[in-house]
Design a protein around this nucleic acid. Structure first.
Lengths: 145, 145
DNA sequence: GAAAGTTGAAATAAAGATAATTACAACTTT
DNA sequence: AAAGTTGTAATTATCTTTATTTCAACTTTC
């Protein structure tokens, strides 16, 4: 079980938009080349990031741009934007517990609060880093190569 | 994307073993009946819990028993036992980032530490509740019905 | 305004992961 | 010996994720 690669892909994409944005038009083809991800999938991710107000793209002209300052975009914003986790939550229950069984009909409620707390802990951690840090670290690594 | 239901299933199973253990032989069939999960899958989960030293089962005789005190089993122990998350970690990277691209060949390293921290936050939260609490809450809910 | 290049989006296919099912040998108890 | 159970392997089904194909709508440039 893994959180879908769309999340890390989105971070990769945003880093590229910032780092290459000055030098070239960062099209879905360019991003596909850097990430190894199919260009249509890249466009889907960009679409979700656009809906979330994180990037700007336009039909025809080509080239994505950040819609916010790097330090105003957290990893959590990206994670939310690409829908890593739906409304059901990160944890999954089996659909058919037996309502005849006293444990079966209560276990969900007993667990819910605790699982939400665990998910919140993960998400809070993601809120604590911004793209600014990620890009700064990436630039540093590139310089040190 | 969701953490596989084997985790919540395992918690359900363990709660049943404790709550019904006094009254009946808790076989994989009984557990299948309460959870709605196929009996073979239940046996697989029990096998993983046994390997982790959480339950005891024996061929032939039938009926699972807890191998530890309820307050010595945390949700994290169960989560680990059933292999919700493999060695690759909770977050998933696309396999083929372009090594020619300076971002492509560095982004993984940049993100790793932060993603591990997020995963650790989730796991620490799971460490903070024991089966004793889950079972106590379940019994309370049953009594209040 | 035509050509070239791009985005947005839908539909379909491929690949991978999760859960269910079938089948049966090994084991315990009665 | 019979009945019931576990452990395990093999297969199938279902669902999710990712890739691919296709094309209309849009911008820019010539």
């Amino acid at each position: 079980m893994q959180i879908k690669s769309k999340f890390t892909a989105a971070v990769h994409i945003l880093a590229c938009i910032d780092i290459f944005g000055g030098q070239m038009r960062v099209t879905s083809d360019v991003l596909s080349g850097s990430t190894g991800i199919n260009a249509v999938i890249v466009r889907n991710v960009l679409g979700q990031l656009r809906t979330a107000g994180i990037v700007e793209t336009r039909q025809g002209s080509g080239g994505a741009h950040l819609a916010k300052a790097l330090d105003e975009i957290t990893l959590y914003d990206i994670y939310k934007a690409v829908d890593c986790v739906d409304d059901e939550g990160l944890f999954h229950f089996h659909e058919n517990p037996n309502a005849e069984c006293p444990v079966g009909r209560n276990i969900h409620r007993v667990m819910d609060g605790r699982l939400e707390a665990a998910q919140a802990a993960l998400e809070n951690e993601l809120k604590s880093t911004t793209l600014a840090e990620v890009v700064a670290d990436t630039r540093k690594m590139i310089d040190e190569e």
